[in-house]
């Protein structure tokens, strides 16, 4: 583990770089996940209200014909 410490006089800059990279990528990743969750939540809320997409409605009416 000694190599880890031998980062030389400018260790601060090296660590800073890795932290910045982790920070930017982490923030972007978290935002994408949060955005996805928010969209899925609003989509399910919409579906709960009974608003259905055309394709879903087409499938339902086909099912209706097939069933009767």
């Amino acid at each position: 583990m000694t190599d880890l410490l031998a980062l030389g006089p400018h260790a601060g800059f090296i660590v800073a770089c890795y932290l910045v990279t982790l920070g930017v990528i982490g923030a972007l990743f978290a935002w994408i996940l949060a955005d996805g969750a928010r969209l899925r939540a609003r989509l399910s809320a919409m579906e709960a209200q009974g608003v259905t997409r055309r394709s879903a409605r087409a499938r339902k009416s086909n099912a209706g014909e097939a069933g009767s």
Binding site: A6, L7, G8, P9, H10, A11, F13, I14, C17
Partner: peptide, 8 residues
């Protein structure tokens, strides 16, 4: 030359 900073 640059020592460890090359890791950047």
């Amino acid at each position: 030359q640059q020592g460890a900073t090359v890791k950047i």
